[in-house]
């Protein structure tokens, strides 16, 4: 069921380097969990036994941004936290993708107050939004699939890869 079954008896295959790189990248996303509040607990539930994100190759959780390529912003982001989030986003190497998980990160949710950022997409680019308060683990898994779709469409000479 692996690669060898596709190659057949000949022992080689032809593909574009672009596709090969994207194939590797999308099946080995290393998430940086930027968890602050309730969504972080659901994110942890996604990483643990029952929902098991490692089935889709995204279980290598790195708590340092310099080793990750998928930023999962999960939870409320407030005035004090936004500079931290931006700093972490800056520290991540290219290429990188961002999931904004939950209503609070995406649009402020129920908290339309003086200290809450009304959507992190005003201040950092976001690729995939996950609705829900908090989203169920299945929703987060779906968002990871969406990111994988985006990754498989990337071009090597686009600005995304730091060229």
């Amino acid at each position: 069921m692996g690669l060898e079954s596709m190659i057949g008896g000949e022992g080689f295959l032809t593909t574009k380097i672009n596709d090969l790189v994207n194939w590797g990248r999308k099946n080995a996303l290393w998430p940086m969990p930027f968890g602050t509040a309730c969504c972080a607990i659901e994110m942890m539930a996604t990483f643990s036994g029952r929902y098991d994100i490692s089935r889709f190759g995204a279980e290598v959780v790195r708590f340092t941004p310099r080793q990750s390529d998928l930023l999962i912003v999960s939870g409320r982001i407030c005035l004090k936290m936004m500079p931290v989030l931006q700093k972490i986003y800056r520290q991540m190497p290219e290429p990188k993708w961002v999931i904004s998980m939950g209503a609070c990160a995406s649009c402020g949710g129920v908290f339309d107050t003086y200290t809450m950022i009304q959507g992190v997409d005003q201040f950092i680019p976001v690729d995939v939004y996950v609705p829900g308060c908090p989203p169920r683990p299945e929703s987060l898994l779906d968002a990871v699939f969406e990111v994988q779709k985006i990754v498989s469409g990337e071009k090597l000479d686009s600005g995304k890869h730091g060229s």
Partner: peptide, 25 residues
Amino acid sequence: PLLKDYPLKGRGERRQFPLVRPRGN
């Protein structure tokens, strides 16, 4: 912030950040 004459949505403090995004390298 909890003074009654301070508005619930603040006075624009939550819009004070720049947009950080990658451009080229």
